[in-house]
Design a protein around this nucleic acid. Structure first.
Lengths: 250, 250
DNA sequence: CGGAGTTTTGACTGGAATCAACTGCGGTGG
DNA sequence: CCACCGCAGTTGATTCCAGTCAAAACTCCG
């Protein structure tokens, strides 16, 4: 518990989030407040509260939660090490943020963030990049929730975890899944039973295999990706009519 | 039109201001290029294309479209007069934008937008406000897609249209619905048949009634809102533990 | 009037939800 | 040490909401 100095100094020596560290280095450096420890299950941000701080996740996994009036719960996203919370400068948080695992975070006052954005131009592209990524993740999630089958959803989820926890292009990565079936279900818009059944089926087909209590081996990345059901867009070639703009009558 | 003060207090329930025309006056003023006319059905932005411009919608309704590899279509949002497209400064558009109705838009080069953001500090809160609204709308949509029934989805949609087209707090507003059943279905994650049946049912119960070919009267706003299924968060009182920060060990 | 596209309506199907029982693991205390 | 409890997860039986397939009705055009 009081090995705090140790963890703090370790973090300062190597505050290296795997993703985005280069793109958002300056932004991360703003979070110079002392490390805060968050217990698993604890709430960092309450839906509806005034947004006074942004947060940087140094370690751990958190969930973004919204609740409907009758208790239905939705997880709109998971937050991993190196991710930022609350940088879009809402006046009130439109969601709660809770720790899935024990986590360590640093905070930054919104006012300070705003000042720095004003003072330091080089921060702006970083901020916009983070916001654009966030928006794109939200779009992907809407696609998943609107049109994907249970199997496609689970595959998307597994590949998301693989991507976000580093083991990107591995042949058959083993991924840690710290969240419960309920978290997964509320993220994918399914029930715990359906999530469980789907994982069982994928296992039976040899696409994945259990690796300890809370981990899975993704044996067949290729086929998982096929099932996931991807986007049609082809980044290579631009659509003709967009590149020329003399196109719309004025 | 200027019943905006009233809606502002409901900010959480109605996150997207009907038209940001006042909040974002300076931002809008940047779009000084000549008006461009867009035919109904025309595509303004292609998914995957490099993002060279942002757009301001002067008039008309557009849809944000994503397509899965096998042709499944998802509409992640509708865009109304006064809304902005592509201000999040993606390098590539993560979606297509198509005109639902004939529309008039103005464009603004991304480079120019970036310059102006640098030059004019007063733009920044406006931009962040727009992005925050966009993100909140996306969150709401995720909640809808993940957990709401067909009836709840349709009610949410009708109330969204009512909100976004001005007729906000009217007792029994008549709303124009320019989009087809297919658009609505692809937005709500349903099929055209289910949308049709649900509207029929709502009509039979007297909650809405047809008003000309592409318009509906929302007879029972109260009951529609009840069905919609709202957020639990109570903007009045802050959660205790967040407001005090001496809470997490440092 | 005709024809294409959109919307509605009907009959049936199916995939995920629901309800319910059971398993397996981890912690706790007798 | 192990008996017991509680919780997370799995598995099975059944239900139901929305999807699918099919056809009719309506609209908007020329």
């Amino acid at each position: 518990m009081l090995a705090r100095i140790e963890t703090a100094s370790r973090a300062l020596a190597a505050p290296v989030p795997p993703t985005g560290i280069f793109r958002t280095a300056t932004l991360h450096a703003l979070f110079d407040q002392p490390l805060e420890k968050v217990q698993a299950g604890a709430t960092v941000v309450w839906e509806g509260d005034a947004a006074r701080h942004a947060f940087l996740v140094e370690d751990g996994v958190l969930r973004i939660v919204r609740i409907l009036g009758d208790g239905r719960r939705i997880i709109t996203g998971f937050i991993f090490r190196g991710d930022l919370i609350g940088i879009s400068l809402h006046r009130r948080h439109p969601y709660s943020v809770e720790a899935v695992t024990p986590a360590r975070i640093r905070r930054l006052a919104q006012t300070r963030l705003q000042e720095e954005i004003g003072r330091r131009p080089e921060l702006r592209p970083e901020i916009f990049g983070v916001l654009a990524d966030e928006m794109e993740a939200a779009q992907d999630q809407m696609v998943l929730l609107a049109r994907k089958s249970a199997e496609e959803r689970v595959c998307s989820f597994l590949l998301l975890i693989a991507r976000r926890t580093g083991a990107v292009v591995d042949v058959a990565p083993v991924i840690e899944i710290p969240m419960t079936r309920l978290d997964i279900a509320d993220f994918l818009g399914l029930t715990i039973e359906t999530v469980s059944r789907t994982i069982t089926k994928l296992t039976a087909r040899g696409l994945i295999s259990p690796a300890g209590r809370h981990a899975l081996k993704l044996c067949e990345m290729r086929r998982l990706r096929d099932i996931e059901g991807q986007d049609e867009s082809d980044p290579e070639q631009e659509h003709q009519s967009t590149s020329r703009q003399a196109h719309w009558p004025q």
